[in-house]
Amino acid sequence: MADTASESDQTSPQGEETRRDFLILAAGAMGAIATIGVVWPLIETMNPSADVLALSSTEVDISAIEVGQTITVKWRGKPVFIRRRTQEEIDAARAVSLDDLSDSESDEARVQKAEWLILVGVCTHLGCIPLGNKVGDPRGDFGGWFCPCHGSHYDTSGRIRQGPAPNNLAVPEYEFLDDTLVKIG
């Protein structure tokens, strides 16, 4: 009985929508919009804060790096590898056919000066730090870096050659301020 009463309230005899349907819909839509409006800032608070964003660049003096040596600097909480490559390493990176690469990129596109390879030292699989900077570190089958966590091999251009990582080691934004100073970020 209650059902029939409410039905006749809400629908006109021809089964058309009534003003009450419209009011319920409109109120519901306003409620949904208001909820989104309230939840949005709550979610936004979890994004990087202004001070974290402000620390987004770092300057490095590279004059003391010998040929064949790699240094690690911290940028945005992550390690950045700066390797002064030997001529053999450059040649090896440039001799690779692009068809052999799963994330196809030429070495020329990954460096500004052939000698200086600058990379974010974070494995693109699950974020471990690959080995290969220190003397005696395993450098993998392609002479670059080797990630010990799940066995990804990177070449002398930091490109993924073997293992589960989907992408090449990322190249951060950087510029040479002069011959000995590089600004990362």
Binding site: I43, M46, N47, P48, S49, V52, S56, R76, G77, K78, V122
Partner: peptide, 17 residues
């Protein structure tokens, strides 16, 4: 991931949340 971390790596904001 950046949103989850509250930064560009696991760091103080991550620990706090």
């Amino acid at each position: 991931v950046t949103w989850l971390w509250g930064g560009f790596s696991v760091d103080n904001p991550t620990l706090n949340r």
